[in-house]
Design a protein around this nucleic acid. Sequence first.
DNA 1: TATGTAAACGGTAATCATTATCATTTCATT
DNA 2: AATGAAATGATAATGATTACCGTTTACATA
Lengths: 157, 157
Amino acid sequence: MKQEYGKGYQWCHRKIKGHGYRMTLGREAILDVLSQADEHLSAEDIYMRVHKIYPNIGLTSIYRTLDILDTIGLVNKFDFGHGRARYELAESSSGKNHHHHLVCTGCGHIVDYTDFIDEEVALLKKTEEGLSRKYKFTITNHLIQFYGVCESCSERK
Amino acid sequence: MKQEYGKGYQWCHRKIKGHGYRMTLGREAILDVLSQADEHLSAEDIYMRVHKIYPNIGLTSIYRTLDILDTIGLVNKFDFGHGRARYELAESSSGKNHHHHLVCTGCGHIVDYTDFIDEEVALLKKTEEGLSRKYKFTITNHLIQFYGVCESCSERK
DNA sequence: TATGTAAACGGTAATCATTATCATTTCATT
DNA sequence: AATGAAATGATAATGATTACCGTTTACATA
Ligand SMILES: [Mn+2]
Ligand SMILES: [Mn+2]
Ligand SMILES: [Zn+2]
Ligand SMILES: [Zn+2]
């Protein structure tokens, strides 16, 4: 159960406590489910998976915890336009590379891509600096998504 | 009322009819409100403004029309993370330049920026081609947003 | 190790933007 | 004017997320 992922369980634990939160069995289970997920899970997806290993969990706690984890940067929350938020472990905690998303508007399939990511990130950095200066914003985050139709969706006419 | 904007009312009219839809007073009023808007309006914002010049309009028609206009590319629909969708006239119909958004997570203020847009668009084009080939996607759209804290929000501690 | 207290919890009800339904009206075409 | 399709507005339904509240738990302290 308590497996290692990214910078590891201990690192997440410290980060949570460092922000004044407690580490509980429920939170541990949520991190565990996220670390094993290969897709971008909704709160209810997470609820169902956590429920198997920790049956007492309530959906409310899932939302509460995800909100905290998003706030302190351990998870990323996304809206891919399907009416519900989706979550993934952040790079820092998952050990995955920085990536952006390609979304099929037909079936909802999502591709994590890292192609051109270095160029993208370089331009983003430059843009952030420019915008920051010009508009007096402290920029904390960015979002890049491409939308289109995947192969099987376009074959399905 | 029926004023000129972007490629003009006639152009929008033709585009709507070209997709098999009818041009009605309500739709005209919605386009009119959008063309005069200086912000990114929610469905209810639009409803209230249209209601002044066309009191019989129902909120349902606002949603229906916006959905159609989004689908045929006359308006863009955005989610800036405040629980409701926001709309703006698309470049083609508004005459505005291609731009992306800078969002203040404190007060919700949104800046349209065009800085570095040529470089951004060039990279996007290249990335789109690469992703398209590699993942067999027909890419139709992209989304770029920066999130941060505006000056007055950071002064307000 | 026992205890006090704030944090976290689960269940339930409430919220609220968006959609579905459906009877009525309007439009384009003849 | 008659016809059928598209559009409309009022209303109800939906569904993800949040608010509330009484109970339980984690953990700093003694
Ligand atoms: Mn991802
Ligand atoms: Mn804009
Ligand atoms: Zn697809
Ligand atoms: Zn602000």
